[in-house]
C-alpha cells in the first residue's frame, strides 16, 4: 500500500509538470498582448515595446517558461503583469469564496444526490422512485445560471430573505453575512451536482441490485433494504466516487457562471478577467494551482478507491 502511495505521488508530480507545459503552451496561442492592454489606445508603439521589455514578454518562449518554472519550484507561482499582485496570495483570497462555495455545493449535492439515488433505485418501480428520477432529470436539464436568476428573483428581490449577490466586505470576519451570501449560490450549484449524482447513484445501485452477492444475501434471509445497505451501497459508491472526481474538473465552469450571477469575487471570475487582460503569468499560475488541487483530489479519490475496493487493494 505504501509503495503504491509513493508511486502515485511521483506520478502526481509528473502530471503537474505535464500540466504546466500544457497550460503555458495553450496560453501562448492566445492573440493579444498584455503590454498593449496596459498601454491602451493612447500610447505609441514604442511605449508598448518598452512595457513588453519591462515585463519580459519579449523574450523567447522557452526562456519565459523556464523562468516561470524556476519560480514555481522555488515556491513562487508568479505575479500579475498588470498590477503585480502575487498569484498565490490573490488566489488564496479568491478561494475563501470559491472554496466554500464549491465544497459546500459538492458536499450537499453528494449527500442529497447519493441518498436519494439509492432510494430512487430501491423504489425504481414505485411512484416515489419515479418522481425522484424525473426531478433529477429536470435538475440536469435546467441551465444553472437560469436557476440562479430565478432563485435571486424569488428569494432575494421578492421576498428579501437573502442577499441578492455579493460577498460581505469583511469576508469571513462577518461569518453570518458570509454564510447568508453563499446560501443561494451553494443551493444553485448543489442542485446541479445533486441531479448528476442522483442519476449515477441510481443506475449504479440498480446494477448492484441484480448482482449475485445481493441475491445471495437475500437468500440468507436479509430484507431487500438491509441487503442493499450492507452489501450494495459500498459497491454502488465506487462508480459514484469516480463521477465525483470527474465533476470536480467541470466545476470551475459552473463556479464562474454562479459567481457572475451572484457577483461573487471568486476564482472563476478572476480567471476570466485575467484571460481578458492577457495577464498570462497570472492565468498560468492560477490554472496550475487549480489543476494541482484537482489532481490531489483525484489522488485522494484513488486512495479512497483502494481502501473501499478489496480487489484493488493488492492490484496495480
Amino acid at each position: 500500500m505504501a509503495l503504491i502511495l509513493i508511486r502515485r505521488l511521483g506520478l502526481l508530480l509528473v502530471s503537474l509538470l505535464v500540466a504546466s507545459v500544457l497550460v503555458f503552451a495553450a496560453l501562448r496561442l492566445l492573440p493579444g498582448d498584455v503590454a498593449q492592454v496596459i498601454a491602451g489606445t493612447r500610447a505609441s508603439p514604442e511605449q508598448v515595446d518598452r512595457i513588453a521589455h519591462q515585463l519580459g514578454t519579449d523574450r523567447p518562449l522557452v526562456i519565459q517558461y523556464l523562468h516561470w518554472l524556476g519560480g514555481v519550484l522555488s515556491g513562487d507561482v508568479g505575479h500579475s503583469a498588470v498590477n503585480g499582485v502575487s498569484v498565490s496570495g490573490e488566489l488564496g483570497q479568491k478561494l475563501t469564496v470559491t472554496g466554500p462555495l464549491v465544497a459546500a455545493a459538492t458536499l450537499l449535492g453528494a449527500l442529497v444526490g447519493v441518498s436519494l439515488g439509492i432510494v430512487a433505485a430501491a423504489r425504481h418501480r414505485r411512484r416515489s422512485g419515479i418522481v425522484l428520477s424525473v426531478l433529477s432529470q429536470l435538475g440536469l436539464a435546467v441551465p444553472s445560471f437560469w436557476v440562479g436568476l430565478m432563485a435571486t428573483t424569488v428569494f432575494a428581490v421578492h421576498w428579501r430573505w437573502l442577499p441578492a449577490g455579493g460577498f460581505p466586505a469583511g469576508g469571513w470576519n462577518e461569518p453570518a453575512a458570509a454564510v447568508r451570501s453563499l446560501v443561494l449560490p451553494v443551493l444553485t450549484l448543489a442542485l446541479l451536482e445533486g441531479a448528476v449524482l442522483l442519476r449515477f447513484t441510481r443506475s449504479a445501485t440498480l446494477e448492484v441490485l441484480h448482482a449475485d452477492y445481493l441475491r445471495t444475501a437475500r437468500a440468507k434471509g436479509l430484507t431487500r433494504g438491509r441487503a442493499l445497505l450492507r452489501h450494495g451501497v459500498r459497491n454502488a459508491l465506487l462508480p459514484v466516487l469516480s463521477v465525483l472526481g470527474l465533476e470536480f474538473a467541470s466545476l470551475l465552469l459552473g463556479a464562474v457562471v454562479i459567481e457572475n450571477v451572484f457577483s461573487l469575487p471568486g476564482a472563476g471570475q478572476m480567471l476570466v478577467t485575467d484571460v481578458g487582460n492577457r495577464d498570462l503569468v497570472k492565468v498560468q499560475g492560477t490554472v496550475l494551482l487549480v489543476t494541482a488541487v484537482i489532481l490531489v483530489v483525484g489522488f485522494l479519490v484513488d486512495v479512497g478507491h483502494h481502501l473501499l475496493d478489496p480487489r484493488l487493494r493488492d492490484a496495480r
Binding site: 436568476l149 435571486t152 428573483t153 432575494a156 428581490v157 428579501r160 442577499p163 441578492a164 449577490g165 455579493g166 457572475n260 450571477v261 451572484f262 457577483s263
Partner: peptide, 18 residues
Amino acid sequence: FRYITDPNAQNNAVRTGQ
C-alpha cells in the same frame, strides 16, 4: 465603488439596497 458586471445582478443590487 462596487463592481458588478452582470446587468441583472446590478439591477438586483439596486432593488435590494445593496
